[in-house]
């Protein structure tokens, strides 16, 4: 639709769909120079173009009215709510009987009637909250069971560490496989909470200590670096 200079040739500037953009930009005041002259000439010569410009103006004014009406609606709603609140306070102050319920303003009547109980509700709510806080302080803040982490701390370590497998493997490689009950009889007298072998490899063994039911903990580190140096 455009020539090499980017302008619309006069012979192609009819009232087809491609000119709508040009007319819209003319209506929005975005055209300058040659494009402005071209668009103005188009509007002067073509009745369809004039109609389109007129319809754009009509749609624009319609949209503006819609926006204004929406804003007015908010103002009206605010005014109505203010009036409702004012009416409720008047009823309380005058000590007058509330108006009979109407379908149009049901909330006004309910608000006026229940306002006398609001204080009681608030007090009950505060009392309930205070009771909850008191119970919370009683059970979690001052309970003697939670006060002795040193004396009553649960055992964080498993009774049979995973490294016991190493002991079992070692045992089986050194002698005949012992009965399952024989392994489980031993309890390590020293538990391994954590080990860090670094770049080396190592194992944890539980060796029978000679005392019945007790096993000695042995951490065996493979000092391969030193072996390589030797």
């Amino acid at each position: 639709m455009t020539d090499e200079t980017g302008t619309i040739p006069a012979d192609a500037a009819g009232t087809d769909f491609g000119d709508d953009g040009l007319l819209m930009r003319l209506y929005d005041g975005e055209l300058e120079g040659d494009e402005l002259a071209l668009a103005q000439g188009l509007v002067e010569d073509d009745q369809n173009a004039q109609d389109k410009i007129a319809s754009m103006a009509m749609v624009g004014s319609f949209l503006r009215e819609c926006v204004d009406a929406d804003e007015r609606g908010d103002v009206i709603a605010d005014a109505v709510m203010a009036r409702i609140e004012a009416g409720a306070h008047e009823n309380i102050d005058d000590g007058a009987e509330p108006d009979p319920p109407t379908e149009a303003m049901p909330n006004v009547r309910l608000g006026a009637k229940s306002s006398a109980n609001d204080n009681a509700r608030a007090i009950f709510a505060v009392a309930g909250l205070a009771a909850a806080v008191a119970f919370g302080m009683f059970f979690w803040g001052g309970s003697p069971t939670s006060s002795g982490p040193v004396a009553e701390a649960p055992d964080p370590l498993p009774t049979q560490p995973a490294a016991e497998v190493a002991f079992r493997d070692q045992w089986s490689s050194a002698s005949a496989e012992p009965p399952q009950s024989e392994i489980e009889e031993y309890e390590p007298t020293v538990e391994v909470a954590s080990v860090d072998f670094g770049s080396k490899s190592g194992s944890v063994f539980y060796v029978p200590s000679g005392e019945p039911g007790e096993a000695t903990t042995v951490v065996w580190v493979s000092d391969l670096e030193e072996e390589e140096e030797l």
């Binding site: 370590l157 007298t189 391994v192 954590s194 670094g198 951490v219």
Partner: peptide
Amino acid sequence: FFRGEFKAKPRNIFFVAG
């Protein structure tokens, strides 16, 4: 060479070897 943490009963020995 080694870092570890043990939870020991008193008078019971444990070993770190290697």
